[in-house]
Structure formats: C-alpha cells, structure tokens
C-alpha cells in the first residue's frame, strides 16, 4: 500500500479535509480569516471565535464520545446543561452578594454536583435496569427541561455577577476562559482514559460485550462512569453557555446541543456502533461544526440555515460509513481488478 493510500485510509483523513476545505472557503470569502490580533492583552479573530463558540459543544462531545464508545448515547445533555445553568443562576440570584467569588464558587459546585446525580440516574437506567440508552436518556431529556423551568420558575434568570460572567466571556492570559475550560476537560479526558486502562476497557465493552464479560470486565461500573462524566461535561457546558449570556433560559440553553455533540463525534470518526473512539477526532468534528456555522455566516447565508448544512453533513457522513456503501465500493473495486486481470491475461 502506498503512503498516499495509507494517509487517505486513515480515519481522520476526511474530517481533516472537511475542516481544511471550510477554512479555505472562509479565507476566500474573508481574507482576514486567519488573522489573530491582540487587543488589551486579549486574543481576537475568527479562529478564536470558532474556538470560543465551539467550546460548549466540544466539552459535551468529549463526554458523548465515551458514552458512544460503550454502544450508548446520551440525549439528555441539553436538558442537563439547562438544569445546571438554572441551578447556578438561581443560587447566585438568591444570594445577597451575587458578585462575590465565593457565591459563584458555591453555585458552580452545586450545579456540578446535581449534574453528577443526573448522570448516576442515567447510568442506573442503562447499567442496572438495562434500558436502551436512547430511551433511558430520553426520559431525562423530556423531564429535564421541566425541572430546569421549575428551578427558574419559568423566568429567564438574568444575573449580574462579574465572576460568573467571567466563565463565559472572560479571558485568562489572553485566551477566552471557555477555551481554557474546554482544553482542560479535553486534556483530563484524554489523560485519564489513555493513561489508565479506562479507555481500553471502555472500547472492549463497546466492541464485544460478551467477550469482555468473560474476560472479567465489569461493564456496570464503566457505564456509570461514562454517563456520569457525560452529565458533568454537559453541566460545565451549560455553565459556560449561561455565563456567556449572563442569563439562564430553561427553554433555550443547550437546545439541540445534544445533536451537535453527537454530530461532532460521528464526524470525528467514532462509530455510533461503539468501540474504538478518538477524542482527537471529536475535537476535529467539533471544529468542523463550529467552522461550518461561521462559514455560513461569513458567506452571507442566514446563519439560522446552518441546520440544512448540518443535515447534509450528517447524511454524507452516514452514507460514507454505511456498510452498503462499503460493499458497493469494494464490489466496484473487484470488478475493476477483474477487468484489469482479464486485460493482463489477454495481453
């Protein structure tokens, strides 16, 4: 196999090509695309915007990657994001000193703790009761927004708390805080799953549950771990989203973000059938989605129509991954080879 063929057959080849094409389109439409300027010690530019706006999706997609690797899915992340935002904002609003750092710390801690409970709940339904993941998490997806509204009492909670706002739109050594948080979550996930045996065991359960059971793996604990981690990621993303607008909107915080996250995972080359996963692929996938949104914007299409493009991307990726496509391509190759063979024999 030639070097080129090896590169093309790498599973990150197409996602990266997709990202580069999007970059190229942007560059044509907006020559200053790659320019990053420093203003008041803070970084600005289109790329920075992509990173910052894509951070919540990336954070959730990291958790989602691990869930999908176990043959699961978590539809409730949007609702969990809404709940955590609602919890944090209501605590900050209820405190006499909303601007106090300690208040914000408590609010964030409580929001994250509650998300852990929600994650354990999902894990319980999947691992102990054995309910299909898509169904199990559908319950929280439905009820979760109601719970979030219960917490906000149906209002959009606007908070005036600089430390909280810092989470969403602040800068840390010139880098947007959201990007820093995303990098930390990504780094921890990569480190924990690849430096310990967690990643391998998760993949093993996703690839062949029965063989894993016979090898002595405890799938139950792993499932609890991934669903809890995914809920935690969702809560972190929810806090960033809420802090960014300084308002908790139970209806719209994290709306459709579960779909973006799943999309990022799929584009990144992790199969929805479970098994081998790549966090780096998910990173690329999240960037592709966010760049797509930005591109649609820079090219001058109403930004709201990005969903049509997302639909196209999902469809193309699914069709490329489809066994039917693989079979027809290999059939085509075989026919080609057969024809070549015949030609050889004839000559």
């Amino acid at each position: 196999m030639s070097g080129l063929a090896k590169v093309v057959s790498h599973r990150l080849f197409w996602p990266i090509v997709m990202l580069l094409v999007l970059f190229a389109i942007n560059l044509v439409a907006f020559p200053g695309f790659f320019t990053i300027t420093v203003r008041d010690g803070q970084l600005f530019g289109s790329l920075i915007d992509i990173l910052r706006n894509g951070a919540p999706t990336l954070i959730i997609a990291v958790g989602m990657t691990l869930v999908i690797a176990t043959r699961g899915i978590d539809l409730s992340v949007g609702a969990v994001a809404a709940i955590s935002g609602a919890v944090a904002c209501s605590i900050i609003l209820g405190s006499p000193e909303p601007g106090n750092l300690a208040t914000v710390a408590v609010a964030v801690a409580v929001a994250l703790l509650i998300s852990l409970v929600l994650g354990v709940w999902n894990g319980f339904l999947v691992a102990v009761l054995g309910i299909q993941p898509i169904i199990a998490t559908l319950i929280l997806m439905t009820a979760g927004r109601g719970v979030a509204m219960l917490i906000t009492e149906g209002q959009i909670l606007t908070v005036n708390s600089p430390p909280f706002k810092f989470l969403g739109s602040g800068f840390w050594f010139g880098v947007p805080v959201a990007v820093v948080i995303a990098a930390v979550v990504f780094g921890i996930a990569a480190l924990v799953t690849r430096r310990t045996a967690l990643g391998m065991l998760i993949e093993s359960v996703g690839i062949n549950p029965e063989a894993s059971r016979q090898a002595g793996l405890r799938a139950r604990g792993l499932l609890f771990a991934v669903y809890t981690f995914c809920a935690l990621c969702a809560a972190i993303a929810g806090l960033i989203l809420t802090a960014n607008t300084a308002a908790a909107d139970a209806n719209n915080t994290g709306l459709f973000i579960e779909l973006d996250a799943i999309l990022a995972v799929v584009i990144g080359g992790t199969s929805l059938a479970g098994g081998r996963y790549t966090l780096f692929g998910t990173l690329v996938g999240a960037l592709v989605i966010q760049t797509l949104v930005t591109t649609v914007y820079t090219v001058g299409i109403p930004p709201i129509a990005t969903m049509v493009f997302k639909a196209a991307v999902v469809t193309i990726v699914c069709l490329l991954q489809s066994p039917t496509t693989a079979a027809s391509i290999s059939g085509f190759r075989r026919r080609l080879a057969a024809r070549a063979g015949k030609g050889l024999a004839a000559s």
Binding site: I134, L259, V308, K310, A311, V314, C318, L319
Partner: peptide, 16 residues
C-alpha cells in the same frame, strides 16, 4: 438501504 440507524437518519431529516 444504507443501514443508518433510524435515530440518526431521522435526526438528519429533523435538521433538514
């Protein structure tokens, strides 16, 4: 035909 999971195929339709 393409053996895409119903969940994902209808998700694409939803986006569209």
């Amino acid at each position: 035909v393409f053996k895409v999971q119903p969940f994902i195929a209808t998700l694409a339709a939803m986006f569209l």
